[in-house]
Amino acid sequence: MGSDPVVGPARILVLEAGRRDAQYWRDLWLYRELFAILAWRDIAVRYKQTLVGVAWAVIRPFLTTLVLTVVFSRVARLPTEGDAPYPLLVLAGVLPWFLFATILSEAANSLVTNAQLVGKVYFPRIVLPLSAAVVSLVDLLVNLAAMAAVMLWFRFLPDWRVVVLPAFVVLAVLAALGPALLLAALNVKYRDFRHLIPFAVQFGLYISPVGFSSAHVPAQWALVYGLNPMVGVIDGFRWCLLGGQTALEPTSLVLSVAVSTFFLWYGGGVFRRTERSFADLI
């Protein structure tokens, strides 16, 4: 038995019904290049044959910001936080929301859109939703750069708190991945979720503090409201980007982390349990 310099010595693999794969995490590590290359594929292909190309990544959140600013600031006349311009307040909410929403919808559909791969080759299936999430992260980077330009234009610069931003990006990704894994697994079995996700995402935009400050939520509801993990994330984004004009509510932050962790554990568990039958169902 030849030993491959790259893969190491031949390993013994036992395939059996209902067997939990002890080598799963090792496999995941071996397939890290597939993960990278699938993410790269999705990025490379995303804006091919489009007129404005990468600009699409920027256009959608910025138009949303424009609309939400008009609706909540001009029509509903809600006040901003401190002296931050209202568009920046909205933008700081729209960016994490778009990150969350695109990860949720792309990752949840990733197995179905790659059905051909799932049915024809083996790899740890979790590679697909994870690589879909990377694409959304790249979009976020582009958008943050665009937001920096907007901030310059408003002559409003973030302070030292901006260095904490990556932590909230990670929290947003984790908050999205839990439900995304759950939905991805369910979507393979029941395609109803494919129709449910866009609706849920649209709905979520209004129950999360995207167009307005979460300070407007009555105090007695804060605990319930904080169960939405995006409340903590969006507050965190605003805290980092708008120079502490937003108070960082510890309750919503702790709730956000707790809810995200729960979904990650639950969604990941469901995904792992059903993963082995994906090829039969898809």
């Binding site: 038995m1 390993r11 036992v14 059996e16 024809k120 083996y122 090829a279």
Partner: peptide, 20 residues
Amino acid sequence: LSRITEPSTGRVVLKGRAAS
């Protein structure tokens, strides 16, 4: 054998990397 789907009964022992 290529691990795309899992057996309902029985078992397989594979030695070495299998590509399908």
